[in-house]
């Protein structure tokens, strides 16, 4: 190799040595020996510092976001897949805000985990819990404006689900699994997980609690359907139609969700059709 490379060529060469095409081929890389000033350390020794900084900084971040997934797949296997991820999926931004969500997609596509979909589900749950815990949320639902809405528009209200909420469903009781693995992790205890133990359809609401921490709440199917409806922008009328629900009951539930911080706003959808089978009541009496 000639020593006269321009800046772009040198950086390309450096970057190629930093990230092996395949993790196993790391030892075969040429650590720029022709380009470096001689020192008492070998080019491989000094270059490994940069390789380690790159790998460790990103895999440490994954360990922090996905502690339960780590316990679920085992620490060694997690280290293996996070290394593969860091090498094969480029970080495209100068910050780490979204890198965890890309890791969830990566896990879901791993052939080795094809028959263990709950691993990807647990990672998705952890990613959202981490995200929720970092959002600044101050309850400021506009009750005054809501009270001004006329009866004719009541059923066209679309309530908005807060950014601090996450909805997820699974064929396993993910909340129980998360709880058991958290306990095992805190006690540094190894634990054997059999999916059979947790086989139960679950509907999960992740939200920021009043302490600003991410929390998990189990839902029944009806509440789940309503919240998914809200997330999809359904009006009150459409939500009532979904489960043939009494409007009073739905409004009482919406009050609870506003109090929990799950709903942070609303709008009126003037184009939606109104409901025929609900018991109409004035909004100010309820909200």
């Amino acid at each position: 190799m000639t020593k006269d490379l321009n800046l772009a060529q040198l950086q390309t060469y450096f970057a190629n040595q930093l990230v092996p095409k395949k993790p196993a081929s790391l030892a075969e890389l040429d650590p720029l020996s022709d380009l470096l000033v001689d020192s008492h350390f070998t080019p491989t020794q000094v270059f490994n510092i940069y390789r380690n900084n790159f790998l460790i900084s990103l895999s440490d971040m994954l360990e922090q976001i996905f502690p339960i997934t780590q316990v679920l797949v085992g620490y060694d296997y997690f280290a293996h897949i996070s290394r593969d991820f860091v090498y094969s999926v480029p970080l495209k931004q100068p910050h780490l805000n979204d890198y965890g969500s890309i890791f969830v997609s990566f896990l879901r596509q791993l052939k080795a985990l094809e028959k263990m979909q709950f691993v990807g589900q647990m990672a998705e749950l952890e990613w959202h819990l981490d995200y929720i815990s970092h959002i600044y949320y101050k309850p400021d639902f506009d009750f005054k404006s809501l009270a001004k809405i006329s009866e004719e528009h009541l059923l066209n209200i679309q309530f908005r689900l807060s950014d601090t909420c996450h909805l997820q469903t699974s064929k396993l009781d993910l909340i129980a699994l998360h709880k058991d693995l958290s306990r095992a992790q805190k006690l540094s205890k190894s634990t054997t997980i059999t999916a059979v133990t947790y086989q139960q359809q679950s509907y999960i609401l992740g939200l920021q609690n009043h302490l600003g921490e991410a929390a998990l709440m189990p839902l029944d199917q009806r509440h789940w359907t309503w919240l998914i409806g809200l997330q999809n922008g359904l009006t009150l009328a459409q939500l009532c139609d979904l489960e043939n629900t009494d409007l009073n009951l739905l409004i009482a539930q919406i009050k609870d969700w506003i109090a929990l911080g799950c709903i942070d706003g609303f709008s009126i959808n003037s184009s939606s059709s109104s409901i025929t089978n609900a018991n109409l009541l004035k909004p100010k009496e309820y909200l």
């Binding site: 950086q11 390309t12 970057a15 930093l18 940069y50 900084n53 790159f54 900084s57 990103l58 480029p90 970080l91 495209k92 931004q93 100068p94 780490l96």
Partner: peptide
């Protein structure tokens, strides 16, 4: 480099 960040 080339849109990839190395966090170092």
């Amino acid at each position: 480099l080339n849109g990839r960040f190395y966090n170092d």
